[in-house]
Design a protein around this nucleic acid. Structure first.
Lengths: 213, 213
DNA sequence: TTATGCGCGTGACTTTGGTCACTGCACTGC
DNA sequence: GCAGTGCAGTGACCAAAGTCACGCGCATAA
């Protein structure tokens, strides 16, 4: 959001920022908390998620430094719309909304940047809404597997999460993940041994991921 | 978005705007169309929606004049993320994105306003995502009925849409709406005769709408 | 009047996903 | 070794939602 801005602006920001560290799993703030300011991630990753009253979760986004979190309530004064949790060691700068607004007025580029960040978020949310409404768990899971393969490069990788974690990310429950992974194996798209996954038929999986919604 | 701005700005906008009328049901633009500018609604209402390849729909929002539509792609240069259709007679001002950007740079209040519009949209989307993910059709339908009752004041009102239209709005199919309306009647929450609906147990319906997600 | 189309109700069926309960496995600490 | 613990697999079951097919009633046009 601030990349490429003039050093003067960065200075202004840094002066007013307070560095705050978070450990893995720690909650930066919860949905519904009143909002005092914005967090700038300088190190680590956080996950933005909603929780239902029965404990199910849905991950809206994962943000990795450098990034900003919780810009929304800055501008409309409401509470945080979702919860944010550190997924590893995180260092964040906290800027009070009063200071941030001041900077916005002094440097008109800043709100323009914020607008493009918002734009990206809106697009991501709309896409998520689409897959949640028209798509199946099977599809979403296929996408997760493809993303993982892309990240590691090769077709073989270790699942970095437990089934439970995947389930929470996708807004479903552990058993469904278990079963769908098995179905993928039955259908010959993947091979699994323990936590090791090998994509045996990348194209097939891709077709599953983009199925006829 | 522009309410309360100085007349000078309004002037600048009006000069560069082109008025475009749309009739009921007409499409302002489709998801995926390249974006040239922003629409300012001056009269009528539009619905913003996504369509799946099998014909199901999901309404993201309904905007009534005065409002803006399609601000998102202005700032990130991408295509429209959803389709927009006139639900009655609509008059819209179209402003080319080049002009809009110019105005943004001259008048820093404008992007700040845009930010608060974006904020509202983000919140609405997150809420929608929550009900779509954790909630049921029954819940969403209960909310629709309650909203209608609120709009008309009394507990009795004529359904302004066909079951088919409600289904598209909620991201489901006609039959499910039919059945759920019947279930509500069986359960004594509503009474129906033709298109006339009477809320017989508003509190009960409210409980359904906010059920234990 | 008849034909046509639209909205609606409904029954039968399938699929998907969620719940419950239990088992087994691997790892850790004692 | 053994108990404790967290993760994974799985069968049985249920509920919600989507699909298909059909019939009915009503309005409007031919």
């Amino acid at each position: 959001m601030f990349a490429g801005l003039e050093p003067e602006i960065i200075q202004a920001l840094a002066q007013r920022a307070a560095a705050r560290p978070f450990t893995t799993g720690q909650i930066l703030f919860n949905e519904g908390d009143p909002c005092d300011g914005v967090f700038l991630l300088v190190e680590g990753s956080v996950k933005i998620f909603k929780t239902s009253s029965s404990g199910r979760q849905l991950t809206l986004a994962v943000e990795t430094a450098p990034a900003t979190v919780a810009e929304v309530p800055l501008f409309d004064g409401g509470a945080y719309p979702a919860s944010v949790q550190a997924v590893d060691s995180v260092v964040a700068l906290f800027i009070h909304k009063r200071d941030f607004r001041a900077i916005c007025l002094e440097h008109p580029e800043v709100p323009l940047r914020a607008l493009s960040v918002f734009g990206r978020r809106l697009r991501a949310l709309v896409a998520l809404l689409e897959t949640m409404t028209f798509g199946s768990v099977r599809q979403r899971l296929a996408r997760v597997l493809l993303e993982l393969a892309d990240q590691t490069g090769g077709p073989t990788f270790a699942l970095p999460w437990t089934h439970q974690e995947i389930a929470l990310n996708l807004g479903t429950v552990r058993e469904v993940i278990s079963r769908n992974l098995n179905r993928f194996q039955m259908d010959g798209f993947i091979r699994m041994s323990h936590r090791e996954v090998t994509l045996a038929d990348r194209e097939g999986l891709q077709r599953e991921a983009e199925a006829e919604i």
